[in-house]
Write a protein that binds this DNA or RNA. Sequence first.
DNA 1: TTAATTAAAGTCAAAAATAGTCAAAGAGGG
DNA 2: CCCTCTTTGACTATTTTTGACTTTAATTAA
Lengths: 144, 144
Amino acid sequence: MRRSLADKIEQYIKVLIEKSGAGQIEIQRSELAETFSCVPSQVTYVISTRFTQEEGYVTESRRGGNGFVRITRTQWINKVDNSINRNQIKAYLDDLLKRQLIGNQEYTMLVYVVESAAQGLAAEQQNQLFQVIINALGKYTSSL
Amino acid sequence: MRRSLADKIEQYIKVLIEKSGAGQIEIQRSELAETFSCVPSQVTYVISTRFTQEEGYVTESRRGGNGFVRITRTQWINKVDNSINRNQIKAYLDDLLKRQLIGNQEYTMLVYVVESAAQGLAAEQQNQLFQVIINALGKYTSSL
DNA sequence: TTAATTAAAGTCAAAAATAGTCAAAGAGGG
DNA sequence: CCCTCTTTGACTATTTTTGACTTTAATTAA
């Protein structure tokens, strides 16, 4: 599985966030660019395409001396807006896995279900299915 | 019956999928076209005619730098009768559990999903959802 | 304190790298 | 000769990579 530069940077950042333990990191754009031998705007590109609110992240930054980019993984999960998309539900599953409310196998299986649904169902049905899954997982995890 | 180029490419891809051991491969359309000395759209043609959901495959792709086409083989069960009800899917789950293709936790969780669906969705949506689950489980179990 | 300098990060659009679409032309089998 | 499936290629769409130029903040010099 060959990966593009953007993919590698994305992975790198995600690992940093995981390791941080706080769901939040601060990086220096130019430093990261240096690490990957690319132009700084490449980092901006990765952040703006892969760490969006849709994907479950919030970013802040500051220019000038000692500038930084802060990326925070948001917790929001299943509330408010009743339209759930595939990325949101995947983020939800990621969270459950991380909190060990489901194991690796269950996680993998559910990802298959979500992917199949995303592939084979119309948007409205997808939404219903995702609602059902969220609902069922709520019951399931609280029954443990 | 002489084998067409399309047939050869189809076979080639199927062998790759077999050898992958994971029921899934990623190829670069242009690279494959190069291998067979044909135009890239020939590859698209093969994929869209021989690797459909009907045939038991799902495909995803990405354009741009390091783009790819990912083909995943799914495992279809009895596609003839396309109406599945709650009892049938539960029987299916029981079977998977008995054959230890899924564990107790996964079983329990899926039952929650099925029950939630049975309670919260109209018949037609239920059916679609169950199809998706069957499909996803086929993929999942064949990936173990 | 203010102005200049330096050190970041942001913007935007062009260029490059892929994949997709669609319709016309070609090739076999009935 | 027709009909269907295959092959091609021109054109489109998407994603990544790059770089010139802009904006903002901190630091230093006057």
